[in-house]
Write a protein that binds this DNA or RNA. Structure first.
Lengths: 256, 256
DNA sequence: GTGGATAGGTTTGTATCCAAGACTCGACGG
DNA sequence: CCGTCGAGTCTTGGATACAAACCTATCCAC
């Protein structure tokens, strides 16, 4: 994380001068670097040429191209033949769709995982929550984000590898919206963190229904926060349906 | 489809002799070719070197590598550094997880789409069902598979582009299991097709609940069919939870 | 002044080459 | 007989070079 930031800063500093250090960069590393750059907004939405991006990231074009193909499959970039690379733009309908997918997948996933969370799983969730508390007190956004990601992954991990990977991917997209449009006030942050704790409490009590309900409300509030940043007057009809499906009763909280 | 089959056949015929025809193959084309090869079983699970695969597909190694990265992100292959490419193996737990994801996503998606299916959407579904009937009468598996894919995509298309793409991806995986382990008897085929028709009927009537219920049962039966081919004594606990979440009451049909 | 053709630069797509890492299998010592 | 080491082979990773496609700006005909 810190290394990435440095890399980006360094790249920024030598925008056109770039003395290329050619260490054996793995494709995975380039993929991660670019993904984080997009998610955190350091690589802005819009068109960019591959060579320019390669210079900025200080990597070769060959691994970059393979990383681009992966990101294309994840939906973060669009690569049309003989056209420049396009970092996909953000929009309210897309944000809604993203929330729908997360609620659908994780709603089911949590119902699967809560009954099989042993004391080990609960301890892990508690530990991650404590770490998030720590970073929140220090107001360390980067550290919090990292643990936040692990927290949500931990909630669904027992449901299967495939599901976990997909949820992580959707988390990235959501994170991108949160970084770009979400309110970063301390009050909102504290609110989200208390929601996390309530989810853990429900899971600890073995109450799947309650855990799902709180998870859904957590996502709805997070999405609503993004919507106001994106334009305000957006009516998330699909989100309401998703909530009603996965956690009956939760859709009422969308009225507020 | 036919072209792909020919390509594979041709490649098979000249297993080691391959006179490479180097037309301007697009990465997307290579990706599609390999994806279909894996899904239909023409490229078997296991390890294979990139050069061998490139020869078999009669494409260059550069576009193949990019296609591999895409398939890696889709979960069809595993590519570890400096290791040979691995076409992922099939397993019962994975099949279950796949069904869970499909039920979760499409269960929500259908609830979203049914209310907004205009006469146009219903007509499209009817048309696709009629086409599937046609191919079923002719016992044309390939033709049926193509329309079958379009049918399921059509059911969720109105829920959003992202969701549709993801469902299509999951459809591919499921198709792979169906081709490898599903019973291909005419009776089973007719049964699935009648389930398709019932889903369309429910959608036409505007009954979201019923449509979801029938869709879920459709998937559960399809998954059960795969399970017997895979080994028999597999207990799909996660599947039951997914069904109960998305379509309360449907989980009872798992008992049979 | 406007529309279209064209030349130039820009960008992507692919093949080819070389280096680095991993695997194989045989030789050797215990 | 078994384990260990090492040379050779295989395979992938990355850079570079070049061709094809695209975009842009200019010029010319009307």
């Amino acid at each position: 994380m810190t290394a990435d930031a440095q890399k980006f800063d360094r790249a920024h500093a030598v925008t056109s001068g770039g003395g290329g250090v050619r260490d054996g960069q793995n494709v995975t590393a380039v993929h991660d670097l670019l993904r984080r750059g997009i998610v955190t907004g350091q690589v802005p939405a819009g068109e960019i040429s591959q060579v320019a991006l390669a210079r900025q990231l200080e990597v070769g074009r060959t691994p970059l191209r393979e990383a681009i193909r992966m990101l294309q499959r994840e939906g973060l970039v669009i690569s049309e033949p003989n056209r420049r690379l396009r970092i996909v733009e953000l929009s309210a309908p897309d944000a809604e769709e993203l929330s729908v997918m997360r609620i659908a997948l994780e709603g089911v996933a949590i119902r699967i995982t809560v009954p099989v969370l042993g004391s080990g799983g609960i301890a892990e969730l508690e530990g991650l929550t404590a770490q998030m508390d720590h970073y929140l007190r220090r107001q360390d956004h980067a550290g919090y984000a990292l643990v936040h990601c692990a927290f949500h992954a931990c909630l669904v991990a027992a449901a299967g590898e495939r599901l976990t990977k997909m949820c992580a991917q959707l988390f990235d997209h959501a994170e991108r919206y949160r970084v770009s449009f979400g309110t970063a006030s301390l009050a909102v942050w504290n609110q989200r963190q208390s929601e996390h704790r309530e989810i853990v409490d429900a899971a600890t009590a073995g109450d799947s229904e309650l855990a799902v309900l709180r998870m859904v409300e957590h996502y709805v509030r997070s999405a609503a926060n993004v919507f106001v940043g994106l334009g305000g007057d957006y009516r998330p009809d699909r989100l309401r349906i998703a909530c009603a499906t996965v956690a009956p009763g939760s859709e009422t909280s969308l009225a507020g």
